[in-house]
Structures are given as structure tokens and as C-alpha cells.
Amino acid sequence: MNATTKSIVEFKDIVTQFGPNRVHDGVSFTINQGEIYGLLGGSGAGKSTLLRQMIMLQEPASGIITVLGQKINSLSPSQIEALQLQWGVLFQFGALFSSLSVLENVSVTLKEYTKLPIEVINDIAHAKIKMVGLPPHAAYLYPSELSGGMKKRVGLARALAMDPKLLFLDEPTSGLDPASARAFDRLIIELKYMLNLTVVMVTHDLDSIEYALDRFIILHDKKVLIEGTMDDVHNSQHQALDTFFNKHKS
């Protein structure tokens, strides 16, 4: 990373509490522009909670979160909307609107937030659908007619509809067969280069971790165990790291 890197997401001393149960105790990390950044950790370590805090679905008990240069706990409704249009979110099971066709799912934000002519909106939506590797006729299917992998691709196309700078992925390869999972990883990497994206993903998939991620954090025992690249992990001698990776490898 050179000196000109810009931080896109910054977490500072985040504390998260569910009732008496403390999930994060002083979590800090920084995501730079152009990275594919992973949030890792065992089940229940609070990875998804961190992601939900970034996209403003949940609030931490204390700490400061900065996304795209804005402190998100003190924004006006119009600032929130402006921020939301700059990111795209892919949920674990796609979270497609079941009453809309694939084409409508992808174009729904374009119709709502832009004044583009409908021909251009349809062109954009069809291109995004092709871009994520779906066949052209899929545009007119409904979510109930799609397989799990296709739903994820449609969810990705929908997340990319407004040309976001920042893409959030919640377990993008879970539930996919190994070949499709690698294809999905390749797609993410290609899109990152083509569209200048910064990608944040929660993942369990060890192959994704090695193949797709530039940097990541591993959460352990309410704190950040390590932040860095795969090489940093190999050089580190931490006991918990071994269990984390061995558990996945075995």
C-alpha cells in the first residue's frame, strides 16, 4: 500500500452490547480504498454485527464509525440517503424482493433515485445482469424460480445498480458449490478492478480468504486478534489463529 491510500471505512474503539452480553470490546480497524477486506472470526464472534453497523442497520454502544469520510452516528436523514446511494449490499440469501422480477429487482433503485429514461434504465439493468454472469432470459424470472447461487448473483447485480463505490457482501460464497464459489470470488475481483470498488465481506470460506481477500481482521474474544494479510497470519504464532484456521481446514 502506498502513501496515497485513502481510508474508506474506519472503526474506532467500537463496543457492542446485547443486554448483559458484550460482543465487541474496543474493536478498531481501517479499510482502505480499493481493497477486498474480510471480516473473519468464529461463529458468534460478531462479524455480521460489524457489517450491520457499517451499513447502519445496528448501532454500537460506543465508538466512532466513519464510512466514506462521514461519521455515521451523527448524520441527517438526507445525508444518510446520500451515503446509502454510494454503497451496495449483498445479503446472505440475496434478500430479493419476491414480488418483483429479476429485472425489476435490479432496476428498482434506478427507477426510484434517477430520472433516466426507461430505455436507459433497462439497458443498465440488462448489462448488470449479464455482468454478474446470468443468462439474458433470467431477467424475467421471479426470485422463487431461481437457485441459491443465481439469487446471490441477482443480489449482486442489484447492489451494483447505482454504481456504488463500496460493496458489502455477507457470506457471498456460503451455500455455493466449490466451483461456483471460486467463480464468484473471481467475479468479485474482476468487478473490483473494472469498477474501482472497495469490497467488504464477511466470510467463512477459507479458499475465499486466501484467494480473494487483500487484507482482513480476525475477531476473537471480543477483540481484533489480528489485522493484516495472509502472510502476517503465517508469520504470527498465536494459539487462537491456529485453532481458527485448523478448524476450517480439517
Binding site: 440488462h126 448489462a127 448488470k128 449479464k130 478492478y193 474501482n196
Partner: peptide, 18 residues
């Protein structure tokens, strides 16, 4: 780069026959 990528992905939308 973006332009070429989208040109590759542009399709003549097939009409909805369903």
C-alpha cells in the same frame, strides 16, 4: 476500462415473452 467492460456486457434485451 469501465467503458470496454460494459460494452462487453451490453446486450440487446430479449423481449419478455413470459
Amino acid at each position: 476500462r469501465m467503458f470496454l467492460f460494459y460494452r462487453k456486457n451490453f446486450i440487446n434485451a430479449i423481449p419478455n415473452t413470459t
